[in-house]
Design a protein around this nucleic acid. Sequence first.
DNA 1: GTGACATATAAGTCTGACTTTTTGTTCCCG
DNA 2: CGGGAACAAAAAGTCAGACTTATATGTCAC
Lengths: 233, 233
Amino acid sequence: MSTPGRGLHGRVLDTLGPAITAGEYPAGSVLRTDELAQRFEVSRSVMREAVRVLESMHLVESRRRVGVTVLPECEWNVYDPQVIRWRLAGAERPRQLRSLTVLRSAVEPVAAGLAARLATPEQCAELTECALGMVANSSGHQLEQYLFHDVAFHRVVLTASGNEMFARLGGVVAEVLAGRTHHDVMFEDPDPAAVTLHVQVAEAVRARDAERAERLTREITVGALQELDILAP
Amino acid sequence: MSTPGRGLHGRVLDTLGPAITAGEYPAGSVLRTDELAQRFEVSRSVMREAVRVLESMHLVESRRRVGVTVLPECEWNVYDPQVIRWRLAGAERPRQLRSLTVLRSAVEPVAAGLAARLATPEQCAELTECALGMVANSSGHQLEQYLFHDVAFHRVVLTASGNEMFARLGGVVAEVLAGRTHHDVMFEDPDPAAVTLHVQVAEAVRARDAERAERLTREITVGALQELDILAP
DNA sequence: GTGACATATAAGTCTGACTTTTTGTTCCCG
DNA sequence: CGGGAACAAAAAGTCAGACTTATATGTCAC
């Protein structure tokens, strides 16, 4: 996925990152650069680069005479795509998926509202195209194609919102949707109601009806929350 | 702010990071590590560490035989607190502030709704305390104290939501509020209506009225949007 | 117990030599 | 004249070793 093994330090991160985010080293654990370098059979310079990256993600803190200390979870840069991927790959996957879905439920409706105001004609067209693609693959166990169009749909909405922060969440949404399709429950065809909602959102955006686009998208995200049993009575 | 000059590579980042995020090197620009090392008068090892960090933020990409290429803005990890700080410090400040405020307007209401369900008694108490602090400093040009309690208030709401992604935005909100107080318009005392809303949110959370807490917080964020002239008629 | 001092430790830095990958050029052949 | 293979150069990547610096901790006198 994305950028595997871009250099030796990347290889080190590919094992050390998941290990830390999985809680294998509890907060406060102290590692030593030299020891790590030996363990991974790389030079200290390479190991230092890896540590610097982990440090920039606030997963660890490096202090003289102490070593490399693992930071508590609340310090982590949980928006770093790399960190998200590591956590989604580990045992914390369910919790991470919940966090991200709640985030989606907050962001996507607002993004849809903005998209209704700001989307270019091209983006409107793309959106309906995606929605149609979802309809076309909503039955007959064509889950992969359905997923493809679903991801594209949400990506377009987030991009069309004109907000860079929203746009950057496209990758996150892709991970969540892909995760739902592949790992979790989703053996049968997608919920027809959800498909309809996507079509209606595309219509609302094209019609420049921000209020409606937001409300419909909220319905979609509420559905996503329900799938994960998030929601109080 | 936060961690100034933690080592030589940090010093390098303090100038190179802002320069890149300010668009001083347009996307596609190519830098060479050796040249940079000379310019900053550091060894190549230190320079490499700095480049690795920039790479982990997706500000640059390092390729053999080519050099260090500056990536287009759409690739940047705009959620990285460091990147946010750099951008807030540069010429792009107004745009960054708008992006962040729109993000707030999406996230905070939902967070407040969750907080109303999940906040501990201690957090409820903290919240009312913050709101009272805001009231106490809302007149008489006590902007600094007001800001302090305002930041604390929003931090508690985001934390009490129980969602780690929301909680992590506490720092971002702090930057936005501080920015508004210090740089932008805010010479006279804060809007009394906004102060009242904060008190009411605290009440709603304590009363476990999620719907009301969300609606009131939405009013607060709408106010923040209006201050920046964001909002269609 | 408290303060100053010494010491050991691990990160931080620098340098120089070497390797590897990739790009762009050159040159030969069709 | 075009295309492909071989080649050369450039820049990042890697490594090893020596040295510096900050700092936690222990020691000792008071």
